[in-house]
């Protein structure tokens, strides 16, 4: 048997490849494409306004900024935003308490059987249904949106918390018991940190659902709130007003969810960051 040579792996020679700085790479793959995305969007918008859809029906970006400024200056924003936020706050707290209680009780198969169908049903029903019914029953009172929030979002708390309770790690529990840790400290150092991600996931989900359902219910029946203003502008066919309120809605939802809630969650999860590195 003779050995001939046949390269299966290409010959590579070490060479000092010019090192692209981190900054330039970031610029190339992150900031420029991102920026290009915004530019493309604005250009598309500008073209669509007039080109695709009549300009009155899709005002350009500047018109809307003007409108938004007008709403802020007149103080209307705080009036309506505060009203919506209050409803969300109340509804959210009730939904959390109710959802957590049911979720914890579902540890027992009997209560699981008792509640399961309701949880699944409310989760798979379009929010519109609850919004319509709440608006129909409660009319213009602020109770409508609150009830709608509770009914649509408690199931998310329930499911997440029930899931977390079921997944509680037995080994950590046994370890704590083996070390004679009393039940209050067990709760504080084992149960709560373990459940925290489930609870936070539920809180975030619940929050984004609350926003949407509150606005929707206000749309059908309310005398104040962001949804009410959207409805008014919609009926007046005032597109720049409608879009302005939509942008406000969005800005607040993102601000509260991504900044306030996320900050809180990150703060709580410092240990995970350090564990990872």
């Amino acid at each position: 048997m003779t050995t001939q040579t046949d390269t299966t792996t290409a010959e590579t020679v070490a060479e000092d490849v010019p090192v692209e700085s981190q900054f330039r790479r970031d610029l190339r793959t992150r900031w420029i494409p991102r920026f290009a995305g915004y530019i493309a969007f604005l250009l598309f918008w500008d073209w669509a306004s007039g080109g695709l859809i009549r300009a009155q029906l899709l005002p350009g970006p500047l018109t809307i900024l003007e409108e938004m400024w007008g709403i802020v200056a007149s103080g209307e924003l705080w009036n309506h935003f505060g009203s919506t936020l209050r409803k969300i706050g109340i509804g959210w707290v009730i939904a959390f308490a109710l959802g957590a209680a049911i979720g914890i009780s579902m540890r027992h198969p009997w209560w699981d059987g008792f509640f399961r169908d309701w949880v699944v049903t409310t989760m798979s029903t379009p929010g519109l249904v609850f919004a319509l019914i709440a608006a129909m029953i409660f009319g213009f009172s602020p109770v409508g949106p609150i009830v709608a929030i509770v009914v649509t979002s408690f199931a998310f708390f329930t499911v997440n918390i029930a899931e977390g309770v079921k997944a509680l790690p037995k080994d950590l529990f046994d370890m704590a018991r083996a070390f004679d840790v009393d039940s209050r400290r067990r709760l504080r150092h084992v149960v709560v940190p373990f459940l925290a991600p489930y609870i936070f996931a539920a809180m975030r989900y619940g929050f984004s659902i609350s926003w949407k359902i509150a606005t929707l219910t206000e749309l059908f029946g309310a005398s104040r709130g962001i949804g009410f203003m959207m409805r008014r502008e919609y009926q007046l066919f005032n597109m720049s007003g409608l879009l302005a309120w939509i942008f406000f809605f969005f800005a607040f939802a993102l601000l509260l969810e991504k900044v306030v809630l996320q900050r809180g969650i990150d703060h709580f999860f410092r240990w995970r960051q350090t564990a990872a590195t």
Binding site: T3, Q4, D6, T7, T8, T12, A14
Partner: peptide
Amino acid sequence: NILSGIETPTSGTVRITENGGDA
């Protein structure tokens, strides 16, 4: 990983042959 072709070497050569052909 280098011998199996998953990774490429920074420098140097690898030959894996079977009677002259690809192994």
